[in-house]
Design a protein around this nucleic acid. Structure first.
Lengths: 220, 220
DNA sequence: CCAAACATCACGCAAACGCGTGATACCCTG
DNA sequence: CAGGGTATCACGCGTTTGCGTGATGTTTGG
């Protein structure tokens, strides 16, 4: 790739990855129409975009379809963030792809636009993403929040006593019963008793399972 | 509390919890100004709001300051979501409280408005939240996404071999070396060797620590 | 081609663990 | 006041672990 003919130092370079030509061109028009933004690269696949990315000219921001043939928008975003960490990637999604939001977040996407987004929403999103924000449709935001609170609210009701939680914590920290006895100022046998009760309540029968359950269900 | 004088079956009941009287009243005006919404309860603290919540009249949606004296907006939101799970809670925040966003999410908040939000943003947020969305300022959204990807992208480079990962998985699942040997069709001693290598690479010296590290750093 | 990494197997031993089976003492609630 | 939950302590036994110290065979890359 040579210097893009339409490159301009004052404008932000926007790259667009989208396999549907019609849609891609309509988005490009919107971008070029927005003052301060220029679509200096448009690709039908991430494979092509990544080839070009090795060159000198890099985008300030990327808009990418999430469901692409070949390398998906998610994989592409992950690659792009490795090569140019500074450039935010905004995913273009349709409602049905809500389940991919999680993966996209892990890939480091910085925002989510619905494909039905209006011109105003798109230019607003470009601005927000470049200002350190993450533009996001409220329905997608809800999905994200739900995932988050699910991850952190596993309603645990194992009725562990205070002492038992204390012992469990030490188990997770890898202490032996002897060490715990010393630490807590009680007998080895008492620690042993607590451990048994913990195993019973958590319905496990070895340290590994107890530790796994404790961490996974945030019991400590 | 008796029947709110201004209650109207057609309108959505909005409750407002905010300790600053001036700000509270200005928000109330905005709410009442919005067609379809009525501020039927305004409180200077969650304690007062929760008293009233025991009554018959419940809000359709709640707007709450995040930093309140006494019971915080986060604790309040958690209580409210237990009593009336259907009513979304939108948190009102200032920029400095970004660190509380995480706790608020866990408490089940459904949206985040900056205190500097405009009238349009507020009424838009009410609509979005009641439509199953989560209105959110892009900067807060970015915070959320960053937390998410941090939680799921701990760059682990312990160089575990395939076999070692396999054994580690079984350790986390609570299997004994003997059981693993059977499962993998190899000798007990070989399993033992793998375990030693894993311990060395993870820099631990007991099962508990290995399990904890494996789960916390998503090695499996 | 040879060293390095990997996967495999082996023995022994002290320490730690899991569990069965007890006991004593302190609360608090019905 | 009796009974249940909690915390404490005790002994024994078979199993499992962690580790020192070896060995052999295969694959891979400089």
């Amino acid at each position: 790739m040579t210097v893009p003919a339409n490159h301009n130092d004052q404008d932000k370079d926007v790259w667009l990855i989208e396999d549907n030509t019609t849609y891609r061109e309509s988005i490009e028009l919107i971008i070029d129409n927005a003052p301060g933004y220029l679509c200096t690269g448009q690709f039908s696949s991430w494979e092509k975009a990544l080839e070009t990315l090795t060159g000198v000219y890099q985008p300030d921001i990327i808009l990418s379809d999430i469901g692409l043939p070949g390398m998906s928008g998610i994989e592409g975003a992950a690659c792009a963030r490795k090569k140019i960490p500074g450039a935010p990637v905004i995913m273009l999604t349709v409602h049905d792809e809500d389940d991919k939001v999680f993966d996209a977040i892990c890939a480091g996407a910085s925002g989510y636009l619905l494909k039905s987004a209006t011109e105003v929403e798109i230019t607003e999103a470009l601005y927000q993403a470049l200002s350190g924000g993450s533009p996001m449709n409220p329905h997608i935001a809800r999905k994200v929040l739900e995932m988050f609170s699910e991850m952190n609210n596993p309603d645990q009701q194992y009725d562990l006593t205070g002492r038992e939680k204390e012992v469990l914590t030490h188990i997770v920290n890898g202490m032996t019963k002897k060490a715990m006895a010393l630490e807590l100022g009680i007998s080895f046998h008492t620690v042993d008793a607590h451990v048994r009760h913990i195993y019973e309540k958590l319905q496990v029968n070895c340290r590994s399972d107890a530790v796994a359950k404790a961490i996974r269900e945030k019991l400590i």
